[in-house]
Design a protein around this nucleic acid. Sequence first.
DNA 1: ATAGGGTTAG
Length: 569
Amino acid sequence: MNFVVLGRGSEFGSRCAPGFLSAIGDAVQALSQAKQLHALLVTADLSCHPSLPTKLLRSYANHGDIVSARHLFDQIPHRTVLLWNSLIRAHARCRDFSTAFSFFNQMRRSGVNPDGFTLACVLRACAEHADPFGASMVHGTMISSGLVSDSIAGAALVNSYSKLNFVNDAHQVFDEMPERDLVSWNTMIMCCSYGGNAHKGLELFHGLRESGEKPDGYTFTGLISCLRGSDLACIGEGIHGLCLKEGYTSNCHLRCALVSMYSRCNVLHSASLLFRSLSQVDLVTWSAFITGFSQAGECEESICLFREMMTSSQCAARPDSILIASLLSACATLASIRPCKEIHCFALRVGINSSVSVSCGLIDAYSKCGFAQDGFRIFEMMPRRTLVAYNTVILSMGSNGLGGEAMQTFVAMLNEGLKPDKATFSALLCACCHSGLQMEGRKLFNRMHSEFGVEPEIDHYVYIVKLFGMVGELQEAYDLIQAMPVVPDSGVWGALLWGCSIHGNKELGEIVAKKLYEIEPRKTAYRVMLSNIYAVKEKWGDVKYLRNEIAKEGMHKIPGISWIENINF
DNA sequence: ATAGGGTTAG
């Protein structure tokens, strides 16, 4: 039945039966039809047709006409849950989550109780808005109103907590659910993929099958996204087989997840094989394929693939900021200015150069290619500077010897109200090392935990050991390493050996070198460093012994390589 | 109500 046929009935004016008008509401397809019906509704008695306003509002929302939706809402005195839901969903749909949330609060103040659909919609808004406080508030509402056992609101709560990285809360809600539907299981499996917890994901998959539910495309996509690293390649292949058997491989999301999984598991051959077998490839799948290569260290290949994508007729979609950011990271690894400029120009041409992630990628890539100043200009032009932007520019300043500027930028960042994270302190300590700001570095190392609550990790220790080593406080550095809450790796010991070598400390150097031989027996650089200490002390016998040992084991030091540019690329 | 690709971090 269509609106035109039904519409003839409206010639009878407001004498239409409520049920009849409601049927017209179902048939509304075009925006103009909705407006016609809206006019009719206003002249009639609104309270006669309780479900019609909701249908109309939904129709406006579906056409993206928020203004008319709000106008209609304002005209309706008796607002049901369904009407509120439609309005809240309308705003959530166009990603205006803060308005959606404020309508939720208005709804509660007006005394209308939310249902599962309302809460699901609001929870999504919290996740998208990075608002864990809002999510826990909704959680509280759910407990007090008994909606905590509602399957739709429950699944939405699990999803919201997991997107906000509140994994334990997500788990707890999931565990306490009286009955878990497929959506809840899928959501929980996807939650594992955000944290890369493959073991837990597989365990949940097992639990899902035990429960008698049949996994679907969402399940497999989530499960595949959990896998990372060579060790899991076999499991990935097994799950791929299962997908083939169940007939899910025509699903575009799932195929893309497979391409990405093979790259993450370092099976680029399988990623290529699968990718090349696809008859239709969309932007996201291209992006997964290209990024897979750059993350596996095949950066030149990833740039070549991008060029292939741009010239192939297969991909109708234009590259977006996500792909550009990923390519810029490949340029940074290559330290090659030509592709960097190529990608920058491309971003300018398609107008995504001012995207935050593209700007961050450009700052980093220009810095690593030796053109830090160009990166600083981009930073200055950014209308909105995020934590990542600050971290990137601080690192760029620090690694280009501008320690003082890096410290000033850190202060500016704090003044903007941004909270530093572990990458901020890595960048700052790196800056201190490069500029010899050893007192400043020590202060930062202490402040990071006491003032900002950031726990030092292994790379922070590498820097602080280097800073101690610079001024010859080798014993202090040694004591610090031994008191570390995490097991020191070759990076930390290597930093101390470097300190020993520049200060010619033979005794400590020998102790440290011994530890390094245990951790990395095949790496000759440590033996060379120790032999340099011997050489300074004119212990030629020891030098000869070490050099002989290197030769005897058939080992040789990998020479360092410096190059200006790979001209052919 | 759930899905695929991303930027900084010796």
